[in-house]
Amino acid sequence: MLLTVTISTPKYLCVQDKCLVIKERHEDKVLDKIPLSDIWVIIIDNPQVSITASLMGQVNDAGIGVLFCSFNHMPNGLALPIGAHSRHAEIVEHQLAISKPLRNQLWAKIIRRKIENQARCLELCGGKACDVEKILSYARDVQSNDKTHREGAAAGEYFSKLLPYGPRWTGPMTASLNFGYAILRTGIAQCAVSHGWLVSRGIHHHSAENAFNLVDDLIEPFRAVVDLMVVKENILAPLSRMNKETLTKVTSVVVLLDDKEMPVQTAIDVYCESLRRAIELKDSDQLLLPTLNGLEMATPDSMRTRGRL
């Protein structure tokens, strides 16, 4: 697995010999040197981190996503490379030509798996069997394009049973959930770009003000991984540095996809590639979706997440 690198204190970042170099500000002392080829995502979680235009250019060339956090330490910006895939134009043509029936079928599959994973999360968190079955009933009722809005109905039921301290949007776990989703969103955006997708053009989401409509489609079946981590680890606001490092490891959680166990990071890559096949072959059955499997992490050798003091 590739590294997720978090910079959470004032540092100076530059690139030398195709490596990310991390230094103390106003000093020449090198604290760390990481090959760009080993990095998946960089998280800038301090407003006093200094970066150069040269660094951003080489990071883009290497296909690395960069997530920026605001003064309240919540993600507020994302930088991605452009046209990272050799077949970018061809893939975008297929994406723009996708038929409405196929679009509706793909969205129904995504939402059905999202709800199934929510039911599994509730079960793993000790939810009552009757509540788990109620969530699963919503998944079974999903129709083309989720035209009866089972996603919203399931979410209301799910979060009311899952979260122990308050509602989804105003409770003490709100910031934790949002931070974890942002980590996933960054990884999916980076991967979608590397696969040649136009991320502003969604399957279901279509806001003219959202540059990441496709990403907000693709994240849905992975959200329950964050939910499970936040509830099982009891991660509450205000988020500590340790909390954030824990949430950053969400991409190392093992899920089941295509009858194989793999970390979320790998599953996102397989998922994006399967979407390309589904669209090019006009067959929604080609789309491979993740199944929540618990909180087992990938092996220590592949769990490559670095935090910075």
Rank of each mutant, 00 (worst) to 15 (best):
L289A: 08
D45G: 06
I135F: 07
E296P: 00
V193F: 04
M1C: 05
I188H: 04
A62R: 01
A298R: 08
E220M: 00
A211E: 10
L287P: 02
I34R: 02
P221F: 00
W40Y: 09
I235D: 04
S284H: 07
R306I: 15
Q118S: 06
I22V: 15
I98T: 14
A175V: 06
D141R: 14
R140D: 14
V230M: 01
L124E: 04
A89M: 11
E24T: 09
T251E: 13
R112F: 03
P167Y: 02
D17M: 02
T186E: 03
S8M: 14
D61G: 03
L218N: 00
A97H: 06
H195K: 10
D216Y: 02
T266Q: 13
W107C: 09
M242Y: 12
D32F: 07
D131L: 08
I39T: 04
G57Y: 10
K147N: 13
N234T: 08
H73Q: 14
V132Y: 12
V253Q: 11
I115D: 06
T291I: 03
T174A: 12
L198N: 13
I44H: 01
H206S: 15
L198M: 11
A298T: 15
K11C: 14
S274Q: 01
M74Y: 07
A192K: 01
S144L: 15
I135R: 02
L102A: 08
Q265K: 07
T4G: 03
E24S: 12
E245H: 12
L55C: 08
R168L: 13
S207H: 14
M303T: 07
A119F: 14
V250C: 15
R308C: 13
L256D: 09
E296C: 02
N76Q: 09
P172R: 00
L239F: 06
V30G: 05
R306E: 05
E133D: 15
V264L: 06
P81H: 09
K134W: 08
A62H: 02
I22P: 06
I188S: 03
L2K: 14
C14V: 10
C69Q: 10
I51G: 02
V231T: 05
R277P: 00
D38A: 12
N104I: 01
E151K: 10
A153R: 15
R87Y: 11
E90N: 10
L163F: 06
